[in-house]
Computed example of a mutant assay.
Amino acid sequence: MKCTSRKYIISGAVAAVLLAGCSTLHTTILPRENGVYQITATASTPREATDGAIEKATKTCESQGKRLVVLNNEDQSKPELERNAKSVANKVLTATGYKMFFSFDTDSDGKMSMLFKCE
């Protein structure tokens, strides 16, 4: 009986580690003057970077008992044509078996920079 429950615990821990590795989102928050923060988020898609930046900024403000006020944002993602070309190239490399040797990095194709305050 103990052995079975250990298997579930170990399986759950392994699944959590694997799922955590699936996200390509990386965020950095820097405090600026007058209560302003700058957040930069990178991810595999512009949408994931934008959503991640907003979520992280919201959590920062909520931890202070305040609400998020976005001052400005700038989408610094790579052009859609470049993102699509990398995606197609990676599919071709996968189909031909060469992806194990070479692939195009798409983990930081989406990039968002945003200034915000907590009020």
Rank of each mutant, 00 (worst) to 15 (best):
A53M: 10
S77C: 10
T28G: 08
L68I: 01
V14R: 12
S5E: 15
E74V: 11
G65C: 09
L93D: 01
A85Q: 11
T106I: 04
F104D: 02
I29C: 06
V70E: 08
N72T: 14
R67F: 15
E82L: 15
A20F: 15
D51P: 01
F102C: 02
Y8T: 14
E48F: 06
S113A: 15
M1G: 10
D75S: 03
A95S: 06
D107P: 02
L115S: 02
G52P: 00
L19R: 07
L71K: 09
L25V: 08
A57R: 05
S5F: 15
Y98K: 12
K99D: 05
V14A: 12
R47K: 11
T42S: 13
D105I: 04
N72G: 13
E55L: 12
K117W: 02
T106C: 06
N84E: 14
A16H: 03
E80Q: 12
T28K: 13
S87Q: 12
S103L: 05
K78I: 13
A15P: 00
P31V: 06
Q64C: 07
V36S: 02
K78E: 15
S11C: 13
I29S: 11
Q64M: 15
V70G: 02
T94M: 01
P79Y: 06
E55T: 05
C22A: 14
G65D: 06
E62V: 07
S103N: 05
C22I: 13
I39W: 03
K7I: 09
D109G: 05
